[in-house]
């Protein structure tokens, strides 16, 4: 089977990549496009470090063939980082020390981003639910939960800011 061109929208910008069949979105983002905030903790769907948003929904980029995102909106941690300063969710992770080694952090922020976009005022249970597929080996999760709670209180989601 030959390679084919796949076109999708990455962080608002249209990109075109040549991919072999079954190449993962993770491999395309990291190694063809240089979006290395997409991590590779396991490459089998077990850790969540590669989480990106596809059409606003959190997706494990390590399990998704790149062809499947043709024509869709893909958002990585790079895409949500403002040119100046930080997204309020990123600031909340900083304020709550919601990381230690930082390797799981991009995935944690992306699932939290999706949660707050859909549900600007999540309950603690809803936050735990959102984080359930993401592994952190350093923090004991509590600081990460606190970061998401902090972001929700600060109105990190656009819907909440309008209030």
């Amino acid at each position: 089977m030959g390679s084919k061109i796949v076109t999708f929208v990455l962080g608002g910008r249209e990109v075109e990549v040549m991919v072999k069949p079954m190449t993962t979105l993770q491999a395309v983002l990291r190694y063809q496009l240089g979006y290395t905030a997409v991590k590779e903790g396991c490459r089998q769907g077990g850790c969540g470090s590669c989480t990106v948003l596809v059409e606003g929904e959190p997706v494990l980029a390590c399990l998704l063939p790149a062809e499947d995102v043709a024509g869709q909106q893909v958002t990585t941690l790079e895409s949500i980082t403002p040119v100046d300063g930080l997204d309020p969710l990123q600031q909340a992770f900083l304020d709550a020390s919601g990381f230690q080694c930082g390797y799981c952090t991009p995935g944690m922020i992306m699932v939290s981003k999706a949660l707050l976009e859909h549900n600007p005022r999540p309950t603690r249970e809803e936050i735990l639910d959102a984080l359930a597929g993401n592994i952190c080996r350093c923090t004991g999760y509590e600081p990460i939960v606190a970061a998401v709670e902090g972001a929700a209180q600060a109105g990190a989601a656009p819907g909440a800011q309008r209030r």
């Binding site: 903790g41 396991c42 089998q44 769907g45 077990g46 850790c47 936050i127 735990l128 984080l131 359930a132 592994i135 004991g140 999760y141 509590e142 990460i144 939960v145």
Partner: peptide, 17 residues
Amino acid sequence: KDFSEYLMPGAYEMPKI
């Protein structure tokens, strides 16, 4: 072989510390 089979507590299991 991987995190799907290696057991660890997640955010849900965390007690008050």
